[in-house]
Design a protein around this nucleic acid. Structure first.
Lengths: 288, 288
DNA sequence: CAACATATGGAATAAAAATTCCATATTTCT
DNA sequence: AGAAATATGGAATTTTTATTCCATATGTTG
């Protein structure tokens, strides 16, 4: 990654040769320079028109710089864009490829590093896709509820258990639906209007979680769902849906983004409730 | 959230109708949702492939939502992107709107952003201070133990519960010391030589965790401690100590680095045990 | 479980986009 | 100014991409 991106390199070459280019191709060059950010989605015709030039001139331009044609040149712009906007995708790709290529050589340190890297990318995306309106709405719901129920199963259960712990430091009445003794149903049973449910679930969505979510909704409780997408079964019954997209590395789902979001939620709530930070995170004093 | 852009509106419609869509079209919907930012430069085939669907299904999807075909639907994404990036006066407009929209909200958003940022820094440090020798040693201990006990209380309990879940996917016998019914002592009681204990604790160190750690050591079990420093009380009784330094923000301790490390540990173990990734993270299939 | 409705995917077709070809125009050089 | 070299744009061709058609599969309902 030493040298900057491929587009810059290419544009540099164009600049160098610019003087020696025929009139029309200079026009194309100027146009590219001026619109580099949207070349990736333009057709030859758009560019030709924009440069007041015949489409074939654009093709010739590309060929002049060593590409077989316009398409190949455009690919440079497209790929550069992709790389910028889907760093995680390329990450995971790379990692997956590494594994596919040499499974024996992959030592534990590499595994750990890759995994941590992937988690970092996950947090980057969390910031990027952060939705203030929804976050705010979620804090609202929590702030105005007296009883807060929390449900999640299997992999996500750890998250629920953490939230329950954290909320325990507020004045709210906290109910962790942990399913102990198979009593999910009984534990959520008393939820009602004015209460809030935090439900955390990812594909393939635990049925206990879905059950609780539906029940909560029937009982007019507010539901905060933490899930992957607006389309899953949780979304339908949620008042607020907070999206978290954990990239999976090694076909293995991370949890960092989810827990980070939940902690952020708790911190924001603590502020809203005017717990002084020290008071809330009194945590620090009788903690694990 | 007034009248945001065309893409959001469209995706909203998709979300609304999602439930009533045939299976394949739901797949397409999910794909779009997950990749909205790059739909504009994908071909029908890319999307079809990404959604595990025949190209014609993608066209049908577009038509279902009132477009004449895929191209017209894609134009929505393309135009939205252009609008955002064209250097027209819209930029200042946007900024002004953002400011106008969130006068109060700014606070919570800031809190959340700072918190997530802090977590990112935490992960950065985790990579930097990563100690391969210790990590390797930890994997060794786990790989050679038949029974694995896990203990942590309060804030760290969530981590323990996650580890227990993850290890449940291996052949190891996993014992989560959860203290249910006040039975920490009884739960750890049967630990012995050849077993391993994972203990997670941070200042001010839960006494249950310390108790278990000491007992495990007496019984000649191997102890993996996850803690802040080499000097704490855990260190003395640990065979391997993995250091995690969560920065505290708002006088509030994050958990991301810890859980990230634990997941990395599990992934490395899974590889060591030659669980195929898919097998281990079969997780994905009957997960939360 | 039959009859119907709906969904799916292969293959043909249509449409769009890119590329090539070539006749003509323009520039350059002597 | 005339010849040679180069550039240009119209139109044909090729390639790629999108769409439609339809036979088969799948699920649903009475």
């Amino acid at each position: 990654m030493a040298v900057s991106n491929a587009v810059d390199q290419f544009m540099q070459r164009v600049a160098d040769e610019f003087e020696s280019l025929p009139r029309q191709l200079q026009g194309v060059a100027r146009y590219l320079e001026q619109h580099r950010s949207s070349i990736m989605l333009q057709k030859v015709n758009d560019i030709a028109e924009g440069s007041n030039v015949h489409p074939s001139a654009v093709v010739r331009f590309a060929q002049r710089f060593g590409y077989t044609g316009f398409s190949e040149m455009q690919a440079v712009f497209r790929d550069a864009f992709r790389e910028r906007t889907e760093p995680s995708g390329s990450y995971q790709h790379r990692i997956r490829r590494v594994i596919a290529e040499r499974p024996e050589k992959l030592d534990e340190t590499q595994i750990a590093r890759s995994f941590i890297d992937a988690c970092r990318v996950g947090l980057d995306e969390l910031v990027e896709r952060f939705d203030p309106a929804r976050f705010h709405a979620a804090v609202d719901v929590l702030a105005s509820a007296e009883h807060i129920y929390i449900v999640a199963v299997r992999r996500s259960f750890a998250i629920a258990s953490y939230i329950a712990y954290a909320l325990g430091h507020t004045q709210k009445r906290v109910h962790l639906v942990d399913g102990l003794g198979g009593m999910h149903r009984e534990q959520i049973h008393s939820i009602g209007k004015g209460d809030a449910l935090i439900a955390i679930s990812f594909p393939p969505y635990g049925k206990e979680t879905l059950f609780c979510t539906r029940l909560a909704r029937q009982r007019k409780a507010k539901v905060i769902a933490i899930s992957e997408s607006d389309l899953g079964p949780l979304a339908a019954h949620a008042n607020v849906l907070l999206k978290v997209d954990e990239g999976s590395v090694f076909a293995f789902r991370a949890l960092t983004s989810t827990i980070c979001l939940c902690q952020a939620l708790f911190v924001a709530l603590a502020y809203r409730l005017e717990l002084k930070p020290n008071e809330a995170a009194h945590s620090g004093d009788f903690d694990a």
